[in-house]
Amino acid sequence: MTSSVEYTIDELARIAGVTVRSVRVYHERGVLPPPRVRGRTGYYDTAHLARLQAIGRLLERGMKLAGIKELFEAWERGEGLAEVLGLVDQVATPYHAETTETVSVEELGKYGTATPENLRRAITLGVYEPADDAGTYRVLSPRLSRFGAALIDAGVPVERALAELERLTADCDRIAARHVRLFHELIWEPYKRSPRTPDDLAQVTRYLAVTRNMSTEAAAELISRALQRSLEADTPELLDAVRDVETGHSIRDAGLR
C-alpha cells in the first residue's frame, strides 16, 4: 500500500467521515491495515482511505466486521470475483432490503413510541434510529414498524406490543444461533480446512442462500400451524363463532345455540 498522499489518523477519519475510535477498532479487528509509522506518528495513504470507505459501504449493507475481514482475506488470496461477490450477497445483504424513511417524534406519538422509554425500546429493537438532533428518526425496519402499528391499532397497548416484539426478537436470536452453529460445524470449518478454491467458496454461498430461505419460510409455516393448533385446543368456541360468521350466523347467535 503505497501513495504519495499521507494522512494522520485524525485527517483520515475526517475525510472518510468516521470517528478516530472507529479507525482504531478497524485496526483491532484486522479489517484495516496498520499505518506506516515514522517517529511516533502513524501515516495512512489513499489505499487506506479506499479500504475505509469500502468498510463503510459494507457496514451500511448490514455486514459485520468479522464477515468484512473474511471478505478482504478472500479477495487478497485471489479468489474469483464472482465467488467473492456471491459471499457478499449472502452475508452482507439484508434478507429483506427495504427502503428507509424518516419520521418525526410527533408522528411516532400517535403510536405511543414518542415517550422516552418506549422510544428507547423501539431503537434497541432496531425499528428506529436517530437521524439527526432535531427529533427526526430513521425507520430501519418498515415491516417491524407496520407490525407494531397493527398490534396497537388492534387494541394492544404499546407497552405490550413492544414486549411482544422483544420476545419475538429473543426467540429469533435463539433460532439464528442454532443455524449459525450448524453452519460453522458443517460448512465453515470444513471450508477453512479446504484449499479454498472458488468451488469451495461457492459451496459456502449455496448453503447460505438455502438456509436463509429455509429458516424464514419454514418458521412462518410452523408458527402458523402452531397458532392454529393452539387456538383449536385452547379457544374452540372462538373458531366455532368465526365459522358461524362465515356461514351467515352472528357471533351472538353462535353464543345462544
Rank of each mutant, 00 (worst) to 15 (best):
D244I: 04
S104T: 14
L140M: 10
P198W: 05
A163I: 01
A226W: 07
R61P: 00
E107V: 03
P116Y: 15
L140Y: 06
M63N: 01
V37R: 13
T2I: 12
D132L: 11
H48D: 07
A218L: 15
G62K: 01
A131H: 13
Y137H: 02
E98M: 10
Y7H: 01
R257G: 05
L238N: 02
V20N: 09
E164L: 15
L256N: 11
F183I: 09
G62D: 07
D253T: 06
A50Q: 14
A54W: 12
E246L: 15
R29S: 08
S215H: 06
E73G: 02
T235V: 10
S3A: 13
D171W: 15
D133A: 14
G155T: 06
D200Y: 10
T41N: 05
R51I: 06
L201Q: 06
L162I: 08
T247Q: 15
R120H: 09
F183P: 00
T169C: 08
T115F: 11
G248S: 02
R14G: 01
M1I: 06
L182S: 13
A92K: 10
S215Y: 05
T19Y: 10
S141W: 01
D173N: 09
T136P: 04
V20G: 00
K64V: 11
D89W: 07
E185S: 12
V127D: 00
R21H: 07
N213C: 06
Y191Q: 00
S141E: 03
D133T: 09
L81W: 12
Y95D: 04
V23Y: 05
I68M: 07
Y191F: 15
R206Q: 08
T113M: 15
P35M: 03
M214E: 14
R174V: 07
T102H: 10
S141Y: 02
V158R: 06
F147R: 12
K69W: 03
D153M: 09
A254I: 07
V245P: 00
L238D: 04
P33D: 15
G39H: 02
T99S: 12
D173V: 12
T8N: 08
